[in-house]
Amino acid sequence: MPYTLALHNASPFPHRRRARYTLGFVLFALSVFFYCAVLTPPPAIVIDDRFLPPSLAHWLGTDHYGRDTLRMILRGGWVSLATALAAVALALLCALPLGFASARTNNSLLRTLSKNASDLLFAFPALLTALLVATLYRPGWLAVLCAITLFNIPVFWKITRAIARSLYLSPFTTAARALGASEGHILLKHMLANTLAPLLTHAATQVSLAILAEASFAYLGLGSPPPHASWGSIVREAQNFLVFSATPLIATACFMVASVVVFSTLAKAYARTLPSRLG
């Protein structure tokens, strides 16, 4: 078996290198977004400079308040990506115990319950959660975060359960148990260690979906109010001024699509580094 694998995929390292480069790029972009959004003041409003075309001073021109479009987009990137990453991380934290618990149990009622609950949660539209939280509480990052987290929980729950189930039944867990390892030890050293890699790989895919979802919610006006504009809210505003200048909308759209592509590339690159039994 190892020989056929080796023949099939002569060296795993190009994938690994590609994955690392992509991850490095993501971290670099994130720190640029963070720097622009948190460590520098927002771009000044200069009404006389409305709708300027791209120039050396303003690389992507200016928007309807005369603000520098590029800096607005970089600031928006932090809001969009931070929300998407936080939601996916939160969902992962909620889903891990659920997945392990439902893989561990031999109670058939609990197993049916966990299967049905995750299936139904998965079929529940994320936008509905966002709309409900926005109605009952108020529109803002919390509504978006709740919706994306709730949508991602069943995704990770199902994956964790499937992987953990096969791990619980695997010989090395039985061996560890026979050698007197405690449940906690098995959980941390065998289960978590073997589940995390495929889960994180899938998390990259989910982040790209979460960026799309966040953009849609913000576009509908369910996200943070104007001063903390995410990419979706920038498009929402720029659409009204399309006649005067299309640059803000097109540039934001490009950033949005690029970030989705980068995260799915990251997921694909890491998926190839996984051992085939887990991929």
Partner: peptide, 28 residues
């Protein structure tokens, strides 16, 4: 599920008086 989310978004973009835009109005 995508269809429901999509209906709200698309009805908003194309200014269609459907259930999706109704929900959005109700929320705002």
């Amino acid at each position: 599920a995508f269809l429901v989310s999509g209906t709200v978004v698309v009805e908003h973009v194309f200014a269609l008086p459907g259930l999706g835009s109704l929900f959005l109005n109700a929320t705002h």
